[in-house]
């Protein structure tokens, strides 16, 4: 079953086209990695899909309907960069923010919401840190809290923008385990990913993006050397001398 259908999506920043005629479908229960070079439009793709950024052209259907009707079934984990880490709030509070959509505007949170938030923190191994100020958490711990915030939304389709950027190995494992369990329970996850080396390990599907879709589909079919070169352009050098897909693009 197709949960996401994108057709001819285009977007721009000022006068520069950042997304050009993007078309792809995503099936239910898949874990898709979105890869591409800097400036390829990966973050913009997510923002445009979610109508956080204006669309120039194209159609987006989620669960067969236009976005407005199904917003509550979608979860979004933005990049960590925009947050003010000095802000006086603790881990539990941050996770509760994920429930604001369910609580409703103008209404206060209830104890049931608090319980849900604690459960989500627990799933990410952060239950002991519920009362800790976010400024006192490590990068990996902060990311786990943001994942918990996404989990608590109980969405069916998740968009995550570079959730593994700047986290330690243990956190990376924990996050990927969580994503795998989401997939196992029938949820669909799309992740903007920066590390080419781990794509075939982590994702069953991949979307190669450089302003437009270079290719998309099952990782084993689509994540080929040719496609990577087409996506990243320029000369790619192998830094490991064998079959392992270790590439670096030269300037």
């Amino acid at each position: 079953m197709t949960v996401l259908h994108v057709k001819g999506l285009s977007a721009a920043y000022r006068k520069n086209t950042v997304l050009d005629n993007v078309t792809f479908q995503v099936a239910k229960g898949t874990l898709t990695g979105i890869v591409g070079p800097n400036g390829a439009g990966k973050s913009t793709l997510i923002k445009t899909l979610l109508e956080l950024h204006p669309r120039i052209a194209g159609d987006v259907h989620v669960f067969g309907s236009p976005l407005k009707k199904v917003k509550s079934r979608i979860g979004y984990v933005p990049q960590r960069g925009s947050v003010d880490w000095d802000f006086p709030t603790n881990a539990l509070d941050v996770v509760m923010m994920g429930l604001y959509g369910q609580i409703g505007w103008l209404k206060p949170p209830r104890s049931t919401h608090k319980k849900k938030a604690m459960e989500a923190l627990d799933k990410m191994g952060m239950a002991d840190y519920a009362g800790r100020q976010i400024s006192q958490l490590s990068g990996g711990q902060q990311q786990r809290v943001f994942l918990a915030r996404a989990l608590v939304q109980d969405a069916e389709l998740y968009f995550m923008d570079e959730p593994l950027a700047g986290v330690d190995a243990a956190t990376e494992r924990a996050i990927m385990l969580t994503l795998q369990s989401l997939k196992a329970s029938g949820k669909t996850v799309m992740v903007v990913h920066h590390d080419l080396q781990t794509v075939d390990q982590y994702f069953d599907h991949v979307l190669l993006l450089n302003r437009t879709v270079i290719d998309h589909g099952k990782t084993e079919e689509v994540f080929t050397q040719d496609n990577i070169i087409r996506t990243y352009g320029g000369a790619l050098r192998r830094i490991k001398g064998d079959e392992s897909l270790a590439y670096t693009a030269s300037k």
Binding site: Y13, R14, K15, N16, V18, P37, N38, G39, A40, H194, D195, L196, Q197, Y232, G233, G234, L236, I239, A246, Y247, T248, A249, K251
Partner: peptide, 12 residues
């Protein structure tokens, strides 16, 4: 305004 230059580098 000048167009954004294509970034041809990939992260590893």
């Amino acid at each position: 305004p000048k167009p954004i230059e294509d970034a041809q580098t990939a992260h590893i």
